[in-house]
Design a protein around this nucleic acid. Structure first.
Length: 553
DNA sequence: GAGTTTGAAACT
DNA sequence: CAGTTTCAAACTC
């Protein structure tokens, strides 16, 4: 534009009063100098704005006309020339001021890190950046709009750029570059985002709930990001895509599930999960469009993302199913793949996190199981002995003694568990032994882990132990020939015990599998209490031989 | 931290 | 003005 001004010797633009374009957050707060970088005193934001407004062209729409919701594929974007000249948009359907819940600092910053690790974290999305970005330009000499410092009207200061000319030492070159850019596009240094925070916040970085009326003046042209990544200038500026945009498969519109998913389902401490969710959101609905045009290699990648999205849905469905099956209150099991229970922020669950068996099966549970099996075994013995009426007193005492020894052994095992970290392999070893036992190879007891010895000893005590064991404690040497005159009875008892023990153990394993599935699908959204409640149910079932027998049969 | 992806800016 | 190239940030691994 050829607007004339005493202070605009060329291009109608005042020398040294330029700059600032890529700053999407042109809010009044931005008029104050930024901390880290030197803002050209000639180009404070307010001054720039007023100058630019005075200069030439009609300014960007100060009053933001409500825009229609932008739905992918439905918009017919104006030409770029129209965009640049900011012709009045067709006032279309009213798009009311949309509330953009800005993610908390824990939600949005790079990789979802709960902290704000660097300047990028504050960046343009925040209304009041407290730290200036530091560019990393290499080839542009920081004299093109690629450079964010240059574009925002600041000298590079403390940046990581090379061959930087965006300094006071190179003011002449800098000025020339600005003029060239303005010649090409007089709006080049105007704020890209026209917005006016309404009903906002204290301006702090932590306060993100800002009602934003605004849009990207030029609009974005995103093709692959779904406008849900910071590649997208609209998304980066926390505004919705508008009719100005030429984006493809846009998901940055009011009411977009994907957008809600990204913004509202947070918080999460797992940046990978955030990005996965975003990718899932992006790819989940774009597979029918742009996906088909992808090269094979990209297709594969995208396919994976789509699968992730599908998995997310499947998991959500499964969680809902489980919730219904278990009649779990949503409050305790509210599942949101992006949300972690606020009470347990540090244990934010991830889909990628597979629950360990040790997380499910606690030592108490094993203790309960051992006790249960011992009791079952004893009951079986008594039951058989009662039927036969042939077991003499010594035999009964023998059984009882072995039971008590088994219980004691079980206690020892759990004491051991309490004293050392629970080792999943131990449990799995025990379970493996259980399978072996079920197959009948009981003479290979030496392969059993020590934790299973109480149970093994129980069986063997009954079957093999005679009165030569005064204590009844587990003793490998007791595996001798049967001396009891009621050998057949003891064999029956042994068989019955084994049957019941295995039956209960099998039931336990089934419950464990169920719990694992539940835990795996909803592990982090289920509260620990909820999960324990389920385990308690399992235990209750297991501890009731009657129920257990009936169920297993 | 290196490599890749992305989309704006710049160029033809 | 459309297509291509360059660029640096964003992102992934």
């Amino acid at each position: 534009m050829e607007a004339s001004s005493p202070t605009a010797p060329k291009n109608g633009f005042p020398v040294k009063r330029l700059a600032r374009q890529l700053d999407f957050t042109a809010t009044p707060a931005m008029c104050t100098p930024l901390a880290a970088n030197v803002i050209l005193p000639e180009h404070p934001q307010a001054q720039l704005q007023s100058k630019l407004l005075a200069l030439a062209k009609p300014a960007p729409p100060a009053i933001l006309v409500s825009q229609p919701q932008v739905v992918s594929g439905e918009k017919s974007p104006p030409s770029r020339a129209m965009q640049q000249r900011r012709k009045p948009k067709v006032p279309v359907v009213m798009r009311l001021a949309h509330t953009v819940r800005r993610p908390t600092s824990q939600e949005v910053n790079k990789y979802g890190s709960p902290k704000l690790p660097d300047h990028r974290s504050i960046e343009l999305r925040d209304a009041t950046p407290k730290k200036k970005k530091q560019c990393n330009c290499k080839n542009s000499r920081c004299l093109k709009l690629y450079c964010e410092c240059f574009a925002s009207g600041t000298y590079c200061n403390g940046c990581n750029c090379t061959k930087c000319h965006n300094t006071s030492e190179h003011e002449a070159q800098r000025k020339e570059a600005i003029e060239i850019i303005l010649e090409r596009n007089p709006d080049a240094f105007q704020p890209k985002i026209a917005k006016s925070p309404i009903g906002t916040t204290d301006g702090s970085v932590e306060a993100y709930d800002v009602t934003i009326m605004g849009k990207h003046n030029k609009g974005c042209n995103c093709k692959k990001s779904g406008c849900l990544k910071k590649y997208c200038e609209c998304f980066q500026a926390s505004v919705l895509c508008s009719e100005n945009c030429n984006c493809i498969d846009c998901k940055n519109f009011e009411g977009s599930k994907e957008r809600d998913y990204v913004f509202h389902e947070g918080p999460t401490n797992d940046f990978r999960f955030v990005n996965q969710a975003i990718n899932a959101a992006i790819c989940g609905t774009s597979k029918f469009s742009y996906f088909n045009t992808l090269p094979a290699t990209k297709k594969r990648k995208t396919e994976q993302l789509i699968c992730r999205a599908t998995s997310v849905d499947a998991v959500k469905d499964r969680i809902e199913q489980i919730r219904q099956e278990n009649d779990l209150a949503p409050t305790t099991a509210s599942f949101s793949p992006l949300s972690a229970p606020s009470a347990q922020p540090t244990t934010a669950m991830k889909f990628t996190h597979r629950p360990l068996l040790a997380e499910i099966l606690q030592s108490e549970h094993l203790k309960e199981l051992c006790s249960l099996l011992v009791v079952v075994s004893a009951e079986a013995a008594k039951k058989i002995s009662g039927k036969k009426h042939v077991m003499n007193k010594g035999d009964i005492e023998e059984v009882e003694t072995s039971i008590s020894s088994a219980i004691q052994g079980s206690k020892d095992v759990h004491a051991q568990y309490r004293n050392e970290s629970f080792n999943t392999s131990q449990v799995e070893g025990n379970l493996a032994y259980g399978c072996q036992s079920g197959e009948g190879d009981r003479e290979t007891g030496s392969t059993a882990s020590p934790e299973t010895l109480p149970l093994m000893s129980n069986d063997r005590d009954v079957a093999t132990e005679g009165a030569d064991s005064p204590t009844g404690a587990s003793n490998p040497k007791r595996n001798t020939t049967i001396k009891s005159p009621n050998r057949e009875v003891l064999k029956e008892i042994d068989a019955e015990q084994e049957r019941l023990v295995l039956k209960n153990f099998c039931g336990f394993l089934n419950k464990l599998i169920t719990c694992t599935i539940i835990r795996e699908t909803s592990h982090l959204s289920l509260s620990r209490n909820g999960l324990e409640s389920q385990l308690e149910v399992v235990q209750i079932c297991n501890s009731n031989p009657t129920i257990q027998t009936r169920k297993s049969v």
